[in-house]
Amino acid sequence: MTLTRGNIRGYEFDRMVLLFSMMDGSREIPCAVSASAMDDLEHASRTATSQREEQFLRLRDRIEQCASRKFDAGELEGTPPGIILRSIDFRG
C-alpha cells in the first residue's frame, strides 16, 4: 500500500531535519528528511532555517515518493519506527 500525505511537524534544529508524517491507512508514520538532503535536491547551499518549511513544500512530492519507497521496502528506523530520508536515498 502506498503511503498518503500526512502533516508537517516543523524543522528540528538540533537534528537538522524537517519532521513530517505519512499515513498508512489510519496509522501515522513519523518521517524526517535531512536539511542536507533537501539542499542537495535543490543544488543549494545552507538554506536558512527559517526557509526550511518552504523548501520542503517545494520538494514535497519527491520527498514523499522517496518515503513511500522506503516504507514499501520495510526500511523503518528508530522508536517508534519511522522513515528517515538522507541524501543517499535520493540518488539513483
Rank of each mutant, 00 (worst) to 15 (best):
R9H: 05
R58Q: 02
C66V: 15
G25L: 03
A44H: 15
R69D: 10
L18K: 01
Q55P: 01
S87E: 09
Q65P: 10
P80Y: 01
H43T: 11
L57C: 05
S50I: 15
T47W: 09
T47Q: 09
A37C: 07
S21R: 00
E75H: 14
G82Q: 06
S34D: 06
A44K: 15
C31E: 02
Q55A: 07
S45G: 11
D40R: 14
M38D: 02
F13Y: 14
S68T: 11
E77Y: 13
Q65E: 14
T79M: 12
N7V: 04
C31G: 00
L59C: 04
I63K: 00
P81F: 05
V17Q: 08
E77T: 14
R9E: 10
S36K: 08
E54Y: 15
I63A: 02
Q55F: 03
L85E: 05
L76I: 04
L59W: 00
F71S: 05
A44S: 07
T79I: 12
L57V: 08
A73G: 11
F56C: 01
Q55L: 08
A44R: 12
M38E: 04
S26C: 08
T2L: 13
I84C: 14
G78C: 06
H43K: 12
R62F: 07
M1D: 06
I88G: 13
N7R: 13
S36F: 15
M23G: 00
R46L: 11
D39R: 07
T79S: 09
N7S: 10
G74Q: 07
I8H: 01
E12S: 11
S36G: 12
D24V: 03
R15G: 14
P80D: 03
R62N: 09
H43W: 12
K70L: 14
A32E: 09
M16L: 14
S26D: 12
S21M: 03
R91Q: 15
E77K: 12
Q55N: 03
R62S: 10
G6D: 01
S21Q: 05
H43V: 10
M1W: 06
D14P: 15
P81N: 04
C66Q: 09
Q65V: 15
S26L: 11
V17L: 08
S68M: 11
R52H: 06
A37E: 02
D14E: 09
L85M: 04
S21N: 06
L85D: 03
S26M: 11
T4I: 03
L19H: 13
E77H: 11
T47G: 10
D61G: 14
M1R: 10
I63Q: 00
A73W: 07
R58E: 01
Q51S: 15
C31D: 01
G25I: 03
D89V: 11
K70F: 12
C66H: 08
A48D: 13
E28M: 05
R62Q: 09
M1I: 04
D24I: 02
D61K: 15
D40F: 10
I88F: 14
T79C: 10
S68H: 11
M1Q: 08
N7G: 06
E42T: 13
R58C: 02
E64F: 06
L3H: 00
L59N: 02
Q55S: 05
S87T: 12
G10E: 03
A73F: 08
I88D: 08
T2F: 14
G92Q: 11
S21W: 02
T4C: 00
L85W: 05
G92D: 13
Q51E: 13
D89H: 09
L41H: 04
D39I: 04
A44V: 15
N7D: 14
